Each structure stands twice: as C-alpha cells, then as structure tokens.
Amino acid sequence: MVQPLEIQLERCKVKKIKPPQNQLGFGVYFTDHMFIMDYSLEKGWYQPRVVPYQPIVLDPSAKIFHYGQTVFEGLKAYRTEDGRTLLFRPQKNIQRMNRSNERLSIPQLNEKVVLEALELLISADQDWIPTEPGTSLYIRPFVFAVQPALGVSPSTHYQFVIIMSPVGAYYPEGVNPVKIFVESEFVRAVIGGVGEAKTAGNYAAGLNAQENAKKQGYSQVLWLDGIHKRYIEEVGSMNVFFKIKGTVYTPSLNGSILDGITRSSIIQLLTHWNIPVVEKVISIEEVYEAGKDGSLEEAFGTGTAAVISPIGELSWQDDKLVIQNGLIGELSQRLYDALTGIQKGVNSDPFGWMVELDLTP
C-alpha cells in the first residue's frame, strides 16, 4: 500500500517587501515560498516540500535543456470581500497537466497531493494575495526533466515546482480591446504534434511572430492551422470566440488547440444564458466576410491570465478589420463581469467552479 506523502514546510527567515498593488504587472514579483517535489523511477514522486523561494540548480546535461521535456499550468487564487480565499477550477488544471505530461512522457501527478501542496503553499503566502479590483494571485505549477544524460529518451528523474506571483492585468490595455495580428507565415502547431499540450516549446515557437506583431503595434498573434494556413486556431495566450448574427463561434478542439479552462467555462456560461454557441472549424475568410458585411458583432479571447480580452482589430495580409468600432462589446463585458464576479465570490456560482481554501494556521 502506498503511504500518503507528508508535505514538509520550511518557512523563510526574511520576507520580501511587497510591491504596491497598482504596480504589479504580470509575473514580475514572486512570493516568499515555493513548492518542490522530486521524482525517480525507483521512488516515484517523493519529498514534497514548501521552501523559501530560491534558484533551481541543475546539471548542464539535464534533459530539460536539450530535449525540452517540460509542461506547465496557470491558475489563480482570489481573495473575496469577506476574506475568503478561492481557487478557480484547480482540478481541471491538474487534469490538463497530466494530459500534457502523458504527451511529453512525463509521469502522472497525484491530484490530491497537488491540491494539498497548493493549499499549504497559498496558506504560507496568503498575505501576498492582492485585493484590489482586477488583481489576483497567479499560480504557476511546472514539471521538468532533470536527469543528467544526453541520450534521446524520456528522463528518469523530474522535479515538480509551484511558484506564485501577485498580478494585475495581463495586457496593458486591461479589459479594453486589443489589436491582433493574423500570422500567415509561421505556424504554432499541427494535428498530431504537441499543440494541445501546455509545453514550453509551443510558446517558444511563437515568440518570433509575436515580436514581429508587436513591432507593428499589435498585442498578440492569431494562429492559423499549420496545413492550409486559413483555419483559425488560437491566439498566443488565449482561445478565441466570434459572435456572428447572434451566435457565438469558437474553433473546435482538434488536437493542436489548447483545451482552455476559461474557454470551457465561457461555453458553459453562454449555454446557461441560452445564447447559441457553436464549436466548429472557422476560416479567417469567414470572419473577414462577416466583418465586411456587418454580421461580425464581437470577437474576444479567453484565458486564465486575461480572463476575457475583447478584440478590437484584426490585421490579415495587410487588410485591417475593425470590430465593434474598436470598443468592448456588450457580451464581452457581460462575460467578463460574470466570470470575474464568480471568481471573486461576488456572484453566485451555479456551476460549482470555485474551491474555498481553509488557510487557518
């Protein structure tokens, strides 16, 4: 019988100075502690511990550096007006992380252990949870190969780490519409690859296009499929939705698109409101035609970091398409208010999404 893992806690001796909540940015500051757990073929996952935030020391031949065997997740903790601490659908993040692990030949994590680790870590750093509107405590779990060997094969040793960062808005624009560049040259992923896994290489592959887009004044890149370069997949850090003639469309999951947790939540919300929502293959031509004939009413991205990000402009092959006159649409605003209200404990949670943590010492 496998014995339950006991998580050790080592508190830091000197606490960091916290930044002002109106100057948080995104992923710039980090809390006092982190979680670490090791893995070996002989022991499985072992030695779970919360320790002071510190550098990770690795051998130069560690497989993560050479073969990119790593996955990560992103979720948030929220402090309610009445002082409770809530997590948004953490089980979904752990389940998706294990799907990514399976694709990258990384051992599965125990959901119960990860949830216990999250609760202990957040409890140790609960005074880092910001309370101002639009802020939250961003949580970044990640796992990576540490075996010092250059043979091309799955690692025999891993580390699982959780770090946390108090954050404000992901985009400088906040909930105001962003401008998106439609990428026609580079591709992010193809069906059968690792596009649906949350792995570092997917994001590294998009950096070049993202930098080019920023030079032209665009916040992000909208990726098209890797074969035909005409079917919409996702934005660099978000899934994407289009409201056309009263129906909301989003690209169907095809193996190269990330199964976003915020995406599935938005679909549930729209269904709950009796707003038609369709998952289907969508071409960029369809969206532009709808934009030109006036039937494209809104477009927005969804993700843990930005929650809801309205899209005010698309640029595809030097053809600019302004959406909703560059202003936030009524549905985008309603979805943002509803979802953030649930996350902050202001609105009722009919879906059972929020998990309340017991942070009693």
Rank of each mutant, 00 (worst) to 15 (best):
C12I: 06
K13F: 11
K16S: 13
K16N: 15
Q21A: 06
G27T: 00
D38C: 15
Y46W: 10
Q54Y: 07
I56L: 14
A62V: 02
I64P: 02
V71F: 01
K76F: 01
Y78A: 00
L86V: 10
F88A: 06
P90T: 07
P90V: 05
M97F: 08
N98Q: 06
L104D: 00
L109I: 10
A117Q: 05
I129R: 05
I129E: 13
P130W: 01
T131G: 10
P133V: 00
T135I: 05
V146A: 07
Q147M: 11
L150R: 09
G151R: 02
V152F: 15
P166K: 03
P166G: 03
V167G: 05
E173K: 13
K179Q: 07
I180Q: 02
F181R: 10
F186I: 03
G193Q: 11
G193R: 09
V194Q: 12
K198D: 03
A204Y: 07
L207F: 12
A209T: 04
Q210H: 15
K214H: 11
Q220T: 12
L222G: 01
W223E: 03
W223K: 06
W223M: 12
D225G: 07
I232C: 05
I232Q: 09
Y249C: 08
T250W: 02
S252Q: 15
S252H: 02
S256H: 00
S256E: 14
S265A: 08
I266A: 02
L269E: 07
T271M: 01
P276Y: 04
V278G: 09
I282R: 03
E286M: 08
Y288S: 01
A290G: 08
A299S: 08
T304H: 01
I311W: 09
E313C: 14
V322S: 10
G326Q: 04
D337G: 08
Q343F: 00
S348I: 11
W353P: 08
V355Q: 14
T360Y: 06
